Amino acid sequence: MDAANEDERHWHRLQVAGLAAKAYATLFLMITGATPTELDQFSYTDALEVEKSPIKKELSAVKFRAGGKTTLYNIGRDTGLPLLKEYLKLREWILNGATHEGLFFTMPATSERISTNPEFSYLKTTEMMAGFFRSISGTFLDPTVRILSARKMRKHKSLGMHTAGVSPSTVAANLNHSEAVNLSTYSEATPEQQAAEFGLFWRAMHHAAYVVRERSQRPAKGEVATATGHCDEFSQPIPVRDFGAVAIEPNCRSQSGCLYCEHYICHSDEEDLHKIVSLQYVINSVRKAAPDAAHAEALYKELSIRIEFILEALGERSDAVKQLVEAIKVKVFEYGELTPFWEKRLSRYEKMGVVF
Rank of each mutant, 00 (worst) to 15 (best):
F105K: 00
P54L: 07
L103W: 09
Q255P: 08
P36G: 15
K344S: 00
A130D: 09
H295K: 01
E262W: 09
L324Y: 08
H177A: 10
G102D: 04
K69L: 07
V50G: 00
I276S: 07
E197C: 02
P143K: 11
E326K: 11
K124S: 07
K322V: 01
G68A: 05
K57Y: 12
F356I: 13
K89M: 02
D7E: 11
R77H: 04
Q217V: 11
V354G: 11
S178T: 11
R134T: 07
T190G: 05
Q217W: 14
L279P: 02
F198L: 12
N284P: 09
T99N: 08
S187R: 07
D242M: 05
D7S: 00
E101N: 06
W342M: 03
D232K: 02
L324E: 06
D292P: 06
A180E: 08
S43T: 15
S347H: 11
A294H: 06
E223L: 08
E271Y: 05
A320Q: 09
L123G: 00
K155A: 10
L48A: 02
G257M: 14
K351I: 04
S278I: 11
G18D: 02
S256F: 00
W11S: 05
G138N: 06
T26D: 13
S184E: 13
R345G: 00
E6M: 05
R154N: 08
C261I: 03
L14V: 06
V330E: 10
M129Q: 08
H230N: 04
L279V: 09
T226V: 03
A4M: 13
S256M: 05
E8Q: 14
E343S: 14
D242H: 10
K89S: 03
S53C: 04
L299G: 07
L314M: 12
H274L: 11
A109T: 04
S347N: 14
G138R: 10
V212M: 04
S111E: 07
G68E: 12
N174H: 07
R91V: 00
L159T: 04
L84P: 03
V211E: 14
V166F: 09
H206D: 12
A298V: 14
T35K: 10
L314S: 03
L259W: 10
V16T: 07
H230W: 10
L72V: 01
Y210C: 03
W11K: 03
L324G: 07
A247F: 05
C266R: 11
L59Y: 14
G131H: 15
T163E: 12
M107D: 14
V321S: 04
E197T: 12
A150V: 02
A23S: 07
R287F: 01
Y122L: 00
K124A: 04
A196G: 13
G160D: 04
F198H: 13
F104P: 02
G76S: 05
I238W: 09
F234W: 15
D319C: 03
L273A: 06
S318C: 09
K322C: 11
T190Q: 10
G353D: 13
L95V: 00
S318R: 03
G67A: 12
L29N: 02
R218H: 07
R317M: 08
A290C: 12
E58W: 09
E312Y: 15
E179P: 09
A20H: 13
F341E: 01
F132C: 06
E334T: 01
